[in-house]
């Protein structure tokens, strides 16, 4: 564990609670993509199957359970509890392409053909593009509420901080995993446009509007 990874994990936790807090306090999931949240639930389910096979640390186990339960909780709030406020008309990013591409990519580039390992690999690729339905939705509606912007910033920062963690681990621990680094770069690049708007607009008190 190093400071970048801890900061990344904490940023991820902040993102999750910001989103839950926004939905719960406004009693609305307006502007939130169920497709993205569903992908995150799928990502954590596929990735953390090793909860049953490998123990790493209490921290690791607690975080995994937190990510899985909160992602399903978020989906429940959008799909059931506050369904009336869900913008299903604009949440229509086609999911078959990223899903298909991630499965094919995992079959070509993986560490081993162990089933759990293959599902882990799919989850790594899938996480890198899971935010696309959300970004697509903002692009279509042309704006995002400020809490949604903070959520997205924290979520993007999480993988960006992990990139620093991988640089650190490469030099300090001689640890390098090409799959996560490749996916992490793609994931972070997808947020770049949003980061720019967030820094130039939201942090100056303006609403996030698409140019």
């Amino acid at each position: 564990m190093n400071i970048f990874r801890l900061a990344g994990d904490l940023s991820h936790v902040v993102a999750i609670f910001l989103l839950l807090w926004k939905i719960w306090t406004t009693r609305s999931c307006k502007g939130i993509s169920l497709r993205s949240q569903g992908l995150f639930a799928l990502v954590f389910t596929l990735r953390y199957l090793d909860l049953f096979t490998t123990y790493i640390s209490l921290y690791n186990t607690v975080m995994k359970i937190l990510f899985i339960t909160s992602s399903y909780g978020t989906c429940y709030l959008i799909f059931k509890k506050f369904r009336a406020t869900y913008d299903h008309n604009v949440d229509n990013f086609p999911l078959q392409y990223p899903l298909g591409a991630c499965v094919i990519l995992a079959l070509i580039f993986n560490h081993s053909w162990d089933p759990v390992e293959l599902l882990w690999t799919v989850s790594i690729y899938l996480e890198s593009v899971a935010i696309m339905p959300q970004l697509w939705m903002i692009q279509k509606t042309g704006e995002a509420e400020s809490v949604t912007s903070h959520y997205l910033f924290a979520l993007g920062a999480y993988r960006a901080l992990y990139l620093l963690n991988w640089v650190y681990r490469y030099f300090e621990e001689d640890h390098f995993d090409a799959i996560v680094v490749f996916a992490g770069i793609i994931q972070t690049v997808l947020y770049c446009d949003f980061f720019y708007l967030y820094i130039t607009k939201v942090l100056r008190g303006q609403r996030l509007k698409m140019p």
């Binding site: 991820h12 090793d50 490998t54 790493i56 640390s57 690791n60 081993s112 390992e117 995993d177 996560v180």
Partner: peptide
């Protein structure tokens, strides 16, 4: 080499 005996990151 890759450490596939458990991924320690989240």
């Amino acid at each position: 080499e890759d450490d596939i005996e458990g991924h320690d990151e989240l």
